[in-house]
């Protein structure tokens, strides 16, 4: 038979690298419509609609102000506790939402995945975009609160430090996305691990310095905090916005390295195992 140039080929093994960037780009319209679909569908037939994007973190913060500040009395480094917690919760929500939703990729999309082809990575990327959108709104709200406290003179503010927030946000999202992808593959195969997922999220929330500063942690158990790649990110995020205590450069490098590893292995694993999972879903 004469040799031909084929546009595509389906082989038994999915390549680690997945589809080419060019092909991924050709599904841009689908990506955007998935984001739109998720965003719109979440607020159909609801009482408050998108207001929840702000209401949810506000209610969470209110709870934690009550528990950590008023009852237990953890120090907030001289910052008003509402602002201190809101800053932490905003970043935490970005992490938690991306991680959890990405981990549910196969379970949520199993009916669609079994009926139509598109690069599977499109689904988690749409989650990523959607959460950045939501995070943007929350960040805007945070900025308003920040401005209020700045004007009333309750906090100091260094405009240059704000730039630090950008890489911190990206690294946080990267870690969430990477670990989410790994968990998507694992939970796709073993459904009983969803319980573990919930546990991890809850545990992580208290191990991360959201409601306290790293410096408050007793030396004896500080290694736990140091081991957590998210610790330095929360510390730095607060540093950039509230001018509180900073974190070591080395711990930030540790976070970045962790993100690179987990992101690469997440994407590779997802690409490689995604099609195989279709047999067992």
């Amino acid at each position: 038979m004469k040799s031909m140039n084929w546009d595509w080929e389906i082989k038994p093994q999915a390549p680690w690298a997945g589809v080419s960037l060019k092909e991924l780009k050709s599904f841009k319209d689908l990506l955007l419509s998935l984001v739109r679909k998720e965003f719109l569908s979440q607020y159909q037939q609801t009482l408050l609609g998108p207001v929840w994007i702000l209401l949810y973190p506000l209610l969470t913060v209110a709870t934690y102000v009550l528990v950590f500040n008023k009852v237990i009395g953890v120090s907030t480094e001289g910052i008003p506790s509402f602002l201190y917690y809101l800053t932490g919760i905003t970043l935490w929500n970005l992490f938690a939402e991306i991680f959890q939703q990405t981990a549910h990729t196969f379970v949520h999309n199993s009916t669609v995945f079994s009926k139509v082809y598109f690069p599977r990575l499109i689904a988690p990327i749409s989650i990523l975009l959607l959460n950045f959108l939501r995070f943007g709104i929350q960040l805007f709200f945070l900025a308003v609160v920040l401005a209020y406290y700045y004007i009333s003179g309750a906090i100091q503010f260094n405009p240059l430090h704000i730039l630090i927030a950008i890489p911190v946000i990206l690294v946080t999202a990267g870690i969430a996305f990477g670990t989410g992808l790994v968990f998507a593959v694992i939970t796709g195969k073993y459904k009983d691990l969803f319980g573990l997922l919930q546990l991890i999220i809850r545990l992580l929330m208290f191990v991360c310095p959201i409601f306290y500063s790293i410096n408050l942690v007793p030396e004896k158990i500080k290694w736990i905090v140091n081991l957590n790649p998210l610790s330095s990110l929360f510390q730095l995020f607060r540093f950039s916005l509230l001018n509180t205590s900073s974190a070591d450069l080395s711990s930030f490098i540790y976070s970045v390295t962790f993100m690179c590893i987990v992101l690469l292995s997440g994407v590779f694993l997802f690409n490689r195992m995604g099609d195989k999972l279709m047999d067992v879903l």
Partner: peptide, 23 residues
Amino acid sequence: LSRIIRPTSGSVRGQGRLSSLLE
């Protein structure tokens, strides 16, 4: 053929855009 599952062995090659209507 629609690239939803992969074959255990063998391969499928094609040209152009493929759409499938399985549902």
